[in-house]
Amino acid sequence: MTAKLSSLERSERRLGIALLAPAFALLAGVVLYPIYNLIRMSFSENKLTEPWLAKPWIGFENYAKAMGDERLWEATWHTLLYVIVTVPGAVALGLGLALLANQPFRVKWPVRLGLLLPWALPLVFAGLIFRWFFEYQQGLVNNALIWIGLSPVNWLTQEGPAFFAICVAIIWKTSSFAALVLLAGLQTIPKSLYEAAEVDGASKWQQFWEITLPMLKPAIIVALIFRTITAIQTFDIPKAMTDGGPGNATETLAMYIHKTTIDSLDFGYGSTLAVLMFIASAILTSIYLRHTRRDPSAGRH
């Protein structure tokens, strides 16, 4: 880095900075400033329900309150559960879809549609569809259960089943993004490796374990990271399916923040919660990233 730059490199760099400047300005306006504002707000009392209180600086009071906030910890725990279940779930299902899409089918559109549809669908819409699926009276799932001779389940009003139903919806909705990332990864694996393995005597299953999976590792990690970041922010689907119910049983962090700020209009405390969520998200992502960097087989070979 200390090496002297030639005049060409210097002018190139200047051009680069000039070209990026508008983007940086925009980024500062719509990202950095709001973040700064958020952090500032998290140290103040700011309730729109009690505007006469002004917005006093209260230091770490909101943070102290958060530590003892039972409902926050519950929401954190739920969010963590969604992460633990839906991240591997979506990536595993995505891998299955990607492997399917990578097959030389003569008619390609059904697989492509199956791959792109969940991705193109708005989250809330997916949530509403699954809410209807798991509906007690007319839902598809219960109809199917009755049809095979089982009794219907009150999916969305019981803690366990509701969690299960939400996870199914999230996995379905988010697997296609993972599948797209993994499909791109699959297509970079040279065909001759499989031929060499075939000659070497590896079965299809061994080829999957010995070639596909290790070669796909960088793509899998990318998919896991992206999926984790969005899983931490889980909001739309449980919002549409149960609105956090029964009780707060399926409420996520993002939903709790939303309720605190939008429903209860407590902007100060809501900001504190948002900052805490941001920190948790940053920690998780950095763990992933560190893991990727340490592994020599990931990335370039």
Binding site: P190, S192, L193, A196, E210, P214, M215
Partner: peptide
């Protein structure tokens, strides 16, 4: 193979 097809990992 022409491209050797060595397993890179």
């Amino acid at each position: 193979f022409q491209d050797y097809a060595l397993y890179p990992h």
